[in-house]
Design a protein around this nucleic acid. Structure first.
Length: 474
RNA sequence: GGCGACAUAGCCAAGAGGCAAGGCAGAGGACUGCAAAUCCUUUAUCCCCGGUUCAAAUCCGGGUGUCGCCUCCA
């Protein structure tokens, strides 16, 4: 049974889908006014891997992640750049697609845009108005949080304390200081749509309520995003959605820990915002995937070059093993298993079970990775100690890593094929082999150094020379 | 002020009553022409003080420290 920590209940709850065998996931996506940063990337990546894992576990997953393509930030940025809001959105949606692709993040099943769901948003607001949960104020529509009895249940806040602690100026006209806009009256020059309350645009929270329910029904199985969205964004979504439907909005609320840079929160004012667009030019994206998945998704992680280097070296241990497996596989026969080989295969089976067990328990990718390393050590022992290996031992092990990598995506997706070395390099390697046979160490070492310059690492093994394309930092 | 998270080796990081996973770095060894890769060995008063228990990193109480949310921040 899969259990996931639920922000709403503050404990791990069993994943019991609304519809047997199906899972609907909605993740709050980016506001497309800039390139996304590595903190955003963590959220996209974790949901990407969660979705793949649930598919691996046999669920039919529908994954929805929105683009917020109209809001204050969009309008301001578009004005600064002298482009229309929709041009700005198009540009950064395209950038999103490019950058997530670089990270090996699959597109969601649906990437709804707020501006393309205005009718659904208006319909939802109308329902809130009918039920007396929202009120009009000079062309704006506000949600009245006093009318939703369980407001605050996600963030464990109560209304009185919230308004006391509020650091914003209170708009005296609102019925409750924390009432929030679901519809905003159009200002000159801003994008706007016709509505029963005049021209305007949706508030931020309402789009997620409207679009998630449009694609996934009134009750989602999993909804989430960064921790900072718990309040007010997700709290407000609950109020709107449950206020309108009377049904639970989401069964599981999943919130990710922060990604900090050098112990500090990323922020514009600190000037330490690091975009993925910039980072993937310097660092192998597979190392980023590994780094982010090597901590539990709810823990804060601290991003630094040093930690990334550590991650790179750790990952290399696994990719090196995969190279070896691929290479040996082609050269060894099948045969009857000796006891030690049967034990290794038994361990492989136990590893798969263990992998599922730890991943089922609140999606523990860090433990899942540890399983890969334990199997790696045993496999290395086999490769080292036994002069004769068998394909029917190596093949299932390689298959397991490939199977797991359909979920994690940091192993084989980063593997470059070893077969297509160009002629010139092939000759250099042959020359060096000849030199080594003649014990001309000076020439042999010179060639090895020369190839290292080209990111090709040579290793002399009892089975002959082996090379690999170096996949570390670029 | 309200709400919350976190503290485990030099570093990263799991574990949530029963001998403290895994990785990186370091040290020693094996293998190697030298390397690389790999293997073996080695590295922990689980922040502090109490309590519960046969047994606590884990549960309870109290501290200390770090961080976050309460601003349309992922």
């Amino acid at each position: 049974m899969i259990r996931l920590y639920n922000t709403l209940s503050r404990k791990k709850d069993p994943l019991q889908p609304v519809q047997e065998g199906k899972i609907g996931i909605y993740a709050c996506g980016p506001t497309v006014y800039d390139y996304f940063h590595i903190g955003n990337a963590r959220v996209f990546l974790v949901f990407d891997v969660l979705r793949r894992y649930l598919q691996y576990r046999g669920f039919e997953v529908t994954f929805v992640q929105n683009f917020t393509d109209v809001d204050d930030k969009m309008i301001r940025r578009a004005a600064e750049q002298g482009v229309s809001v929709s041009e700005l959105a198009d540009r950064f949606i395209q950038a999103y697609e490019e950058d997530t692709k670089a990270l090996g993040i699959w597109p969601a099943d649906h990437h709804p845009r707020a501006t393309e769901h205005i009718p659904q948003i208006i319909a939802l607001i109308e329902k809130l108005m009918e039920k007396g949960l929202a009120y009009e104020l000079d062309g704006d529509i506000y949600y009245h949080i006093d009318s939703f009895a369980s407001y605050g249940k996600l963030s464990y806040q109560n209304l009185d304390e919230l308004s006391l602690g509020a650091r914003v100026e209170i708009d005296e006209r609102k019925r409750h200081p924390m009432d929030f806009a679901v519809w905003k009256k159009a200002k000159p020059g801003e994008p706007s749509w016709e509505s029963p309350w005049g021209r305007g645009r949706p508030g931020w929270h309402i789009e997620c309520s409207a679009m998630s329910m449009a694609y996934l029904g009134d009750t989602l199985d999993i909804h989430g995003g960064g921790q900072d969205l718990i309040f007010p964004h997700h709290e407000n979504e609950i109020a709107q959605s449950e206020g309108a439907t009377g049904k639970p909005f989401a069964r599981h609320w999943l919130h990710l820990g922060y990604l900090n840079i050098d112990e500090e929160k990323m922020s514009k004012s600190l000037g330490n915002v690091l975009t993925v667009r910039k980072l993937v030019k310097e660092v192998d994206p597979m190392i980023l995937r590994y780094f982010m998945l090597s901590s539990h998704y709810r823990s804060p992680i601290n991003f630094s070059r040093e930690h990334l280097d550590q991650a790179g070296r750790a990952l290399e241990r696994l990719t090196t093993l995969l190279y070896k497996l691929q290479e040996r596989l082609e050269k060894v026969p099948e045969g009857d298993l000796r006891d030690e080989e049967q034990e290794l295969l038994d361990f492989l089976g136990a590893s798969r079970e263990r992998f599922i067990e730890v991943m089922d328990d609140d999606f523990n990718t860090a433990e899942g990775i540890a399983v890969l390393f334990e199997l790696a050590r045993k496999t290395n022992v086999y490769l080292d100690r036994f002069a004769e290996q068998k394909r029917n031992v190596l093949q299932p092990i390689l298959a397991f890593y490939q199977e797991v990598d359909k979920i994690f995506g940091f192993l084989t997706e980063g593997l470059e094929t070893v077969s297509d070395l160009d002629q010139e390099i092939e000759e250099l390697i042959n020359t060096r082999e000849k030199a080594r046979r003649e014990k001309n160490w000076e020439l042999a070492d010179a060639i090895r150094d020369q190839l290292r310059e080209k990111n090709i690492l040579l290793e002399d093994t009892p089975q002959g020379v082996r090379w690999k394309v170096y996949g570390g930092e670029k």
